[in-house]
Design a binder for these strands. Structure first.
Length: 269
DNA sequence: AGAGGGATCTTCT
DNA sequence: GAAGATCCCTCTC
């Protein structure tokens, strides 16, 4: 008899041309670091247009964790797939995980392990870990020992068809088709939609040629940012309640809305 | 609409 | 040996 449970064919094969990867493959070849849209930049005349500010740099990531978590809102995550297609999404929900004292953080007690090493690396380093054996979560190291920001939700901007493929691959055929706003509305959903897995752990958003961040055109104002408790960290004792989750008010793609907190924070006038 | 449980495996005690 | 920064499906009200 055939084991019929859930097909665990790696869905990436259907989308990416190469299933294999090597952690150091970003350094060798010369690549177009700016826009992947256009052909290789051979002429110097075309480079000046978008030369600057196409990606966020070290100065941006080098902020205290909470600041960075808020600053991420409205910025754009980009993944350029091996076949050249680019996926883009606007960050609408984040969580701050402080080092040491934060009992909900993987770096609690200041302990560094093989898994969480990226949390201790330079700001802008990706920390990707597997959870429940089947999903991934994606963080970005910030300023501060062992501190990092979890990306919880994105508003999909570009490559939605590809995201749908990636997200649907592991769902039942009978399941309802996903709406656009459901593609990246959760930490592991966005990793699935963006084809982010463990191989992205410890990659540098400042220098990597496949994954980076771009400045968003509109950052939310102070009053548009909701501050709430983090999700799924009840094991963290009193730290579970701390207001370390940030999201854009009213955005459809936010994974968990806290109405109580919203009414408190919104009833300011 | 909400509650409950299963999937699945790496990591750390 | 147990739990987990989740998601999805199914059952029940």
């Amino acid at each position: 008899m055939m084991p019929r449970k859930r097909k665990w064919l790696t869905p990436l094969n259907a989308v990416q041309s190469k299933p294999s990867f090597s952690p150091a493959d970003t350094s060798g070849s010369l690549t177009v670091v700016l826009d992947g849209n256009s052909s290789p930049v051979s002429s110097k005349y075309f480079t000046e247009k978008k030369r600057t500010s196409s990606r966020l740099g070290t100065d941006f990531f080098n902020q205290p964790c909470i600041n960075l978590a808020k600053s991420f809102l409205g910025q754009i995550l980009v993944h350029k797939l091996p076949d050249g297609r680019e996926l883009r999404g606007r960050i609408v929900e984040t969580e701050a995980y402080l080092g040491g004292e934060d009992a909900a953080s993987h770096s609690k007690g200041g302990k560094q392990t093989a898994r969480n090493a990226a949390m201790f690396m330079k700001p802008g380093t990706l920390y990707v870990y597997q959870i429940y054996g089947i999903y991934f979560c994606m963080n970005v190291s910030s300023q501060g020992e062992g501190a990092a920001v979890l990306l919880r939700s994105l508003e999909p901007l570009q490559g939605l068809d590809t995201m749908k493929q990636l997200r649907s691959a592991q769902r039942k055929a009978s399941a309802k088709p996903l709406k656009d706003w459901q593609l990246c509305n959760g930490p592991s959903k966005l990793c699935q939609a963006f084809s982010i897995n463990k191989s992205f752990d410890q990659k540098d958003l400042v220098r990597d040629t496949a994954v980076w961040m771009e400045p968003g055109s509109e950052a939310p104002g102070e009053e548009a940012v909701v501050t709430a408790a983090r999700i799924g960290v009840s094991y963290g004792g009193e730290w579970a309640q701390k207001p370390l989750r940030f999201y854009i008010r009213g955005n459809k793609c936010v994974s968990v809305v806290d109405k109580k907190v919203e009414s408190e924070q919104g009833a300011a006038d």
